[in-house]
Nucleic acid binder design. Sequence first.
DNA 1: CTAATTATAGACATTAAGACTCTTTAATTA
DNA 2: TAATTAAAGAGTCTTAATGTCTATAATTAG
Lengths: 145, 145
Amino acid sequence: MKYAQATNYALHTMVYLASISPDSLVGVRLLAELQSVSTTYLSKILTKLAKEDLVSSSPGVNGGYRLARSADSITFLDIIEAVEGRQAILTCQLAGVEKEEACVIQQKMEVGEQQLKSYLAGITILEIVEELDESVKSFLLKHQR
Amino acid sequence: MKYAQATNYALHTMVYLASISPDSLVGVRLLAELQSVSTTYLSKILTKLAKEDLVSSSPGVNGGYRLARSADSITFLDIIEAVEGRQAILTCQLAGVEKEEACVIQQKMEVGEQQLKSYLAGITILEIVEELDESVKSFLLKHQR
DNA sequence: CTAATTATAGACATTAAGACTCTTTAATTA
DNA sequence: TAATTAAAGAGTCTTAATGTCTATAATTAG
């Protein structure tokens, strides 16, 4: 079980946005360079984040992205679900014997998944930024516009 | 994030093995019928479980599979890792800025993953069998050899 | 007003993984 | 010896992930 690479990009992008400048706009080109990924591909991911209202965007000269909300109100769960979707970790088709009743296996998995979600919902982008190494922070701050 | 369908088959197969008969051998054909999956495909999954010493197998007439250990010593985590592998849920390539230090994002994910693993390691096959509905149990018992 | 810049969207290509099937081989037992 | 059953390998098919390329729309600098 592994998250998509896109989820990794999304998490880093949000941390970078919060770190470089929580308020002013940051272009996708810089965000892509920081992660060695193409601008077009990262754009797709950012569009997903925008649709879930995690970032806001502005086109045009000096346009770009910024956090749509305060960094302490955006959690890992928000970001992961925006990119991965909200499908359950395991779903039984409930064919054959267990057709009429809920699958016990699935019930157990749901509990575990809920625990993980609770944990992820407790981690904010602000928290990550605060724990960043100083050298990383100062590097990112150099790229403010 | 979703487990493979094969993981679902594996979990059900282990529960069926424990339920039908913890000691005597059960052929893959029956196990496949119960889940509406082909015998050859389920065979592959069972071979993975055998390699991790979760089931033991015997070829030949009246051969088949049985649990390799007692049902209370086999956990969801054992089965899931046997099928899914043991790759981390998220790994940063640690390029660019964060090259020299561990990625904070990854560290947070590792904690969550460890929590999930602990939960999964606490759920045994025996526990599932005990919680099965009586109608399911009696249905499965009809297929003892 | 025009040109440059930037996000958005769609179509497309490539790759990898998952989910199988088919066939052969090896082991075991009736 | 023949039937049965697991193991293993090769191959197929589908789907999803990971991108690229191009065109369009919105915004702003000049």
